[in-house]
Design a protein around this nucleic acid. Sequence first.
DNA 1: GCTGAAATTTAGATTTGTCTAAATTTATGT
DNA 2: ACATAAATTTAGACAAATCTAAATTTCAGC
Lengths: 219, 219
Amino acid sequence: MLMASYTEENYLKLIYALSARQPAGVTTNALAERTNTRAASVSDMLRKLAEKGLVHYQKYQGVTLTDEGHRQALQIVRRHRLWEVFLVEKLGFGWDEVHDMAEELEHIRADKLTDRLAIFLGNPQFDPHGDPIPTPSGELPATGYQPLCDATMGEPVRVMGVLHHSPAFLQHLAKTGLTLGCVVKICEISAFDGSVALSIGEQPAIFVSYEVARNVLVG
Amino acid sequence: MLMASYTEENYLKLIYALSARQPAGVTTNALAERTNTRAASVSDMLRKLAEKGLVHYQKYQGVTLTDEGHRQALQIVRRHRLWEVFLVEKLGFGWDEVHDMAEELEHIRADKLTDRLAIFLGNPQFDPHGDPIPTPSGELPATGYQPLCDATMGEPVRVMGVLHHSPAFLQHLAKTGLTLGCVVKICEISAFDGSVALSIGEQPAIFVSYEVARNVLVG
DNA sequence: GCTGAAATTTAGATTTGTCTAAATTTATGT
DNA sequence: ACATAAATTTAGACAAATCTAAATTTCAGC
């Protein structure tokens, strides 16, 4: 009754991720879109996950994780983020290349493997995208980071993470020079289109779209 | 038409492994025993693999790999053995603990991952059990090793590998002191039960069963 | 060469995760 | 409030990988 299949794990992880934006309950359509399946398939799966006690599910009312579902989701997230560290730090991949590989590696459940991997990596607290890595017992270091677009104008802040992990977004960041750890300052937010004028370190100011500023975390 | 499923990969790998002992064709029952499934299920799968062009299959006559099947099997074996090196060399596992984890890791197909892993590990030629690691292009370093039981009496030889990978066997070896790389000499083969008297390095002679001697490779 | 045993395959069913199409429930606009 | 649009669920089907039970083929002993 307790062990989730590969597919079920992907649902748990996705419900966890979308819960941040939809705390009252993740919708069927939102899940269908992100899993590249149809809403009908999602309904079936939610019923099954509810039977297993991994989600709270009321028909037509969206879904949230149970305590057990939340615990399992955090384990998956922990494995995903540890493998991302491995791929970047040890194998030399770029942070824009590792998501799909980590997506497969995360499903290997052997706790001994995960724990030794964490030790091998020096028990990192954050993955290459700045996301916190849950501890073995499921605690998630709180970050208190905020989106770059909400930072105080003129105040220097450090880039600590991203909200999007798509290769396209990460490569775009690389081109603008916005790398993890660099210090930036908002110079101006355009009244015309919301574009954000930034200075990165001592460089002259550049413009990034509001969409970019909304998906970069600073602290 | 070309990509094999997780389960199909396990069949290919197994057919490859059993082909060494049954070059004329691996039997359905042999596969059923090793996959923990029934002969009927194996029949179904062999028909499917034949349709995909991965095996030569004549009803009632056993199965062999096609060139493409052989190529894919070697890729899987390469990944399996590279991950075993990683688990032992980098994460500090014993050689008796790594098989099941490698069994899952081997199914991650990303070539970039496999190639970078090989580089990270220093392009090893042999896994922790002494088995040769196929190259990216599918060449398998020939070893010319022979079972310990066939070694010339009184002649010192070096332990280079094992034919069995079960934790029970490997832990038994550890207890007798037969480790990879150690130098041994056959002192006597018992006429009573085939037990083999060995001296390991400068230590006084010990007895191991014929079954042990048959599954240790020396060269 | 026959005959029974062993090995193998076929037939039909089951489970998992998906689909399409139809039915149902909730939300929206006036 | 009420019609209709949007979201969601149900119904029925399918492919993958397995099973049991029955049928078939091969093999071994004589």
